[in-house]
């Protein structure tokens, strides 16, 4: 693919990238703190990752290799479009392999393969403010962050237990970063929360509509909030992936027919494909599917 001459490299003009980089640097310096930035109009609707795209555009260079996932998959519309966008406006190489990527932009998942030093994970964030559920006033939530008044976050978890007998928050599960700021990890499943803790990779979060950027630098403490008598737990699956037999990974339920037939498969498509390439087989993989075609 060739560069479109009328666009600057990576779509945004250099001054805008500079502004965003400054916000990113500040975010890295204050882990978990939401830094305001002058979010630009992007050629896509809000909710499709305008924040993530701007962060990626500000940090991407010609030698980077970009991977984009949506709910763990490389092949959904959102992922394909964003990958194509950067291939066009930055002429960068793209990949679906986690191991090969230098920048991974994601919506709602962290790859199963542990991230490495030097990799950057860019999250698309719809609502950056974890306290908003109970305190709608932005002036008040900012003050609460400033004064470290986080009792309200536990009120939310208390309500969960009171209603459901357990902490029923399964995604966007609040975390405390480096013992200071409470942060919304974006709508990733809580299954992925432990992966954020002490990750060697840099994690950047962009909320385009809300004009906020925040970050978790490499090797930063990320602790999921909980109660002493209701400790944080990740989801557990009773069966392995139907395609690659992986256990200890996050699975999506796929409906097969109108008669209640369903299967659980890896949400991380790259991880699943790699495992199958290595010869792992689930009980619904390969043969049956091919036979059905």
């Amino acid at each position: 693919m060739s560069l479109i001459p009328s666009y600057n490299f990576a779509y945004l003009d250099e001054q805008t990238k500079r502004m965003i980089r400054r916000s990113i640097l500040k975010a890295i310096a204050i882990p978990g703190y939401q830094v305001p930035f002058a979010s630009r109009e992007m050629p896509m609707p809000y909710g499709w990752g305008t924040g993530g795209v701007q962060v990626t555009a500000a940090i991407i260079g010609p030698s980077d290799v970009l991977k984009v996932i949506d709910q763990g998959a490389d092949d959904t519309t959102n992922a394909v479009s964003i990958r194509a966008f950067f291939a066009k406006v930055a002429n960068v190489a793209t990949t679906t392999h986690t191991a090969d990527a230098t920048i991974i932009q994601t919506r709602h998942r962290i790859p199963e393969r542990p991230l490495q030093a030097g990799q950057v994970l860019v999250y698309q964030v719809p609502i950056p403010e974890p306290l908003r559920f109970l305190e709608p006033r932005e002036t008040e939530t900012r003050k609460m962050h400033a004064l470290e008044e986080y009792g309200l976050m536990h009120v939310k978890l208390y309500e969960d237990i009171a209603k459901h007998g357990q902490i029923a928050t399964t995604y966007a599960y609040p975390v405390k970063v480096e013992g200071r700021y409470v942060m919304d990890p974006s709508p990733t499943p809580k299954f992925d929360n432990p992966k954020m803790h002490m990750s060697p990779a840099l994690q950047l979060f962009g909320a385009g509509r809300e004009m906020r950027i925040y970050a978790v630098p490499p090797f930063t403490e990320v602790v999921s909030l909980d109660f002493e008598d209701h400790p944080f737990e990740i989801q557990h699956f009773t069966q392995p992936c139907a395609l690659c037999a992986a256990t200890g990974v996050y699975l999506d339920e796929v409906i097969l027919d109108d008669h209640g037939g369903h299967m659980f498969v890896c949400s991380d498509t790259d991880n699943c494909e790699e495992r199958r390439a290595q010869g792992h087989r689930g009980h619904l993989s390969g043969e049956e599917l091919e036979a059905a075609e």
């Binding site: 009120v155 009171a162 109660f227």
Partner: peptide, 24 residues
């Protein structure tokens, strides 16, 4: 009051605000 959270959470909020982390 916080009108959209339960009576129990309304009473418990101050406890959680001063660091009580035991639901029971």
């Amino acid at each position: 009051l916080r009108m959209t959270v339960s009576a129990g959470a309304n009473v418990g909020e101050r406890l959680m605000a001063v660091g009580d982390r035991h639901y029971g």
